[in-house]
């Protein structure tokens, strides 16, 4: 395929083909228009939420009577949201670390080792991606209730069970991204290290893992997002004391949409945007994802 591409590309002289430039413009205009619509669809709701958070009156009306940032100052009066943010960050951090610790070795085994059942395992490890979150949530809830009844150990609403549930949906992303990353890496470098006398452990820690850095960062990033944002699965496993931020916001929005909840989600968004910008300095996100 590449061979044919190179062959065909040789006669291509940019200066020799001025004609297609003009013919391209209507198509290009259509693509720009569609692209613009897409950008508006993705970013407009966020801008609107930001705008709502600056409205002085607690009842939404346009044009609003006045603007103020006082809602941000009043966030401290609603500790429920702060608590929920803490829970979300805690669960997402544990799920990210756990899924990397479990998913990276699994990807190395899937790509670098030959063993019976490899194909089946590959499908099995990615399968949670294809099962609807509400189905996983209900199934896990039902199993935990059965175990609770038999063992009398409280499970629903515990951090451990939430993290276990989130591991199930973050591991497939880690495996998917790390497998794709590993397949691009040249195996010859690892073999060269082994030939030069490095033990398998040294090859892993000094060659394979450092080469996987970009894939690992992308995997960690996705694991964090998937866990932090999850609603469908988490919904079944929370208890009154342990509520994640998206669910706290969802429960609030069910009854009212006001500038206060807009301020809450804007703070959450700002924290995450900052995290992204920092990460972008460390590894180019545009190359990773």
């Amino acid at each position: 395929m590449t061979g044919a591409g190179t062959l065909l590309a040789i006669p291509s002289e940019p200066s020799a083909v001025p004609a297609p430039r003009r013919a391209r413009s209507p198509l290009k205009a259509a693509m720009l228009l569609v692209g613009g619509v897409g950008l508006v669809l993705m970013l407009l709701p966020l801008l609107m939420t930001g705008y709502i958070s600056t409205i002085a009156d607690s009842v939404l009306a346009f044009p609003p009577d006045g603007h103020s940032l006082s809602w941000y100052a009043r966030l401290g009066e609603f500790p429920k949201f702060g608590q929920a943010l803490g829970t979300s960050l805690r669960i997402a951090a544990m799920a990210t670390i756990g899924s990397l610790a479990i998913g990276i070795p699994a990807s190395i085994a899937l790509v670098r080792h030959r063993f019976p059942g490899r194909g089946v395992l590959n499908v099995l490890l990615l399968s949670p991606l294809t099962v609807p979150g509400v189905v996983i949530g209900l199934a896990l809830y039902v199993l935990m209730v059965e175990v609770e009844i038999r063992s009398e150990v409280p499970m629903i609403g515990s951090d451990a069970m939430l993290v276990l549930a989130h591991l199930l949906i973050t591991i497939p992303w880690v495996v998917r991204l790390c497998v794709a990353n590993l397949m691009q890496l040249d195996r010859a470098i690892e073999e060269a290290a082994a030939n030069l006398g490095a033990s398998p452990r040294q090859v892993l820690w000094k060659v394979t893992l450092p080469m996987m850095r970009q894939g690992i960062v992308a995997a960690g990033l996705f694991a964090f997002i998937i866990s932090f944002e999850n609603i469908e699965l988490t919904l079944f496993l929370i208890s009154p004391g342990v509520i994640t931020l998206p669910i706290a916001v969802l429960q609030y929005l069910e009854y009212r949409a006001d500038p206060l909840v807009a301020a809450v989600v804007m703070v959450q968004t700002a924290v995450i945007a900052l995290l992204l910008v920092l990460l972008d300095r460390y590894v180019r996100l545009s190359k990773v994802v």
Binding site: L46, T49, I231, V249, D280
Partner: peptide, 23 residues
């Protein structure tokens, strides 16, 4: 441009739902 596409991924569905409610 890539960051502009990734950023909405991080913004939960509730955040955008609120924006659509306002719109």
């Amino acid at each position: 441009a890539v960051l502009l596409v990734i950023l909405p991924l991080f913004i939960g569905s509730t955040v955008r739902a609120l924006g659509w409610i306002g719109l």
